[in-house]
């Protein structure tokens, strides 16, 4: 009986195992294959050697990603805290409100800012009515950061909220009873306990920010590493693959470094 059902159990995962092997694992090998070959399919390191010309672009992308992540964290922590302390029904509604824009297409969210920030956009129109000169906002680094923050903000709120919700309220009371002030309660109790949420929030914002494409192009008129890879993969497949591989390794390393900051079961909170 048990033998029969265990055979059935194996059979039931089989389609997924085959699927995952064929379409998750094998494609990863193809990134490596194209990264280490040349146009004719011979082994070559030329793609890799060429990636060194892209180091400044990688650094710029990481810098933009870091800035966006820090701003997201500073904006998201208070709102996550406020939501976690609200009444259950209010919590549900507020959380829903924060998440809804995330379900809008990335292209549309970015396009919305494009129309707003452009020289003939609504902000400049209002400024003109108020008698101020036009302010050039589109195609600036600030616009890129704004686009990144806007697009990935909900990813920061959700994990921090989840952790804060589970936070044991009696610990805060205990700290207060023992004479801690508001600031001390926050720095000594709440902040350390919410660290796993902060870490997964940072990962969830940093990864898509660094690898983003389209946003910087549309709002900043510049190419970040994601934009460059997107262009290259169609014209120089080997260099494109080499850059993708570097990006992937970079991100996996940063994820594992971030996870070091949490306890053994911190993991990725979705």
């Amino acid at each position: 009986m048990t033998k029969k059902s265990s055979f059935l159990q194996k059979l039931i995962v089989a389609p997924y195992m085959v699927w995952a092997a064929a379409f998750i694992i094998v494609p990863m090998f193809f990134v490596a294959y194209y990264a280490f070959t040349d146009r004719n399919g011979n082994f070559s390191l030329s793609g890799f050697i060429a990636t060194k010309n892209y180091i400044p672009l990688f650094i710029q992308s990481i810098w933009y990603g870091l800035l966006a992540t820090v701003i997201c964290l500073l904006l998201a922590y208070p709102i996550a805290f406020i939501i976690s302390r609200a009444k259950p029904t209010t919590q549900k509604v507020l959380l829903m409100l924060v998440m809804i824009p995330m379900w809008m297409n990335l292209l549309i969210r970015t396009y919305a800012w494009m129309t707003i920030l452009q020289d003939t956009g609504i902000i400049n129109h209002i400024l003109k009515l108020l008698g101020f000169g036009p302010v050039h906002m589109i195609n600036t680094p600030g616009a890129v950061i704004l686009g990144l923050v806007y697009n990935f903000f909900p990813y920061m709120v959700l994990p921090i909220y989840t952790v804060l919700l589970k936070l044991d309220g009696t610990l805060i009371e205990a700290a207060q009873d023992l004479g801690s002030g508001t600031t001390r309660v926050f720095t000594k109790v709440i902040l350390p306990l919410s660290l796993p949420g902060i870490v997964s929030g940072i990962t969830m914002v940093f990864v898509p920010s660094v690898s983003s494409f389209y946003i910087a192009n549309k709002l900043g008129g510049i190419s970040l590493i994601g934009d460059r890879i997107e262009e290259l993969i169609r014209t120089n497949i080997n260099l494109g693959a080499a850059l993708s591989l570097v990006l992937m390794v970079l991100i996996l390393v940063s994820i594992s470094v971030m996870n070091k900051f949490t306890d053994e079961d911190g993991g990725i909170l979705v």
Binding site: F23, I24, I25, V26, P27, M28, F30, V31, Y33, Y34, V207, P208, V210, S211, F213, G226, I229, E230, I233, I237, G240, A241, S244, L247, M248, I251, L252, I255, I268, V270
Partner: peptide, 17 residues
Amino acid sequence: VPLMNPDIVTGISMMLM
């Protein structure tokens, strides 16, 4: 893996295959 990998890498890896 598809959840952790950046979407651009997931897309490219399948495209290459």
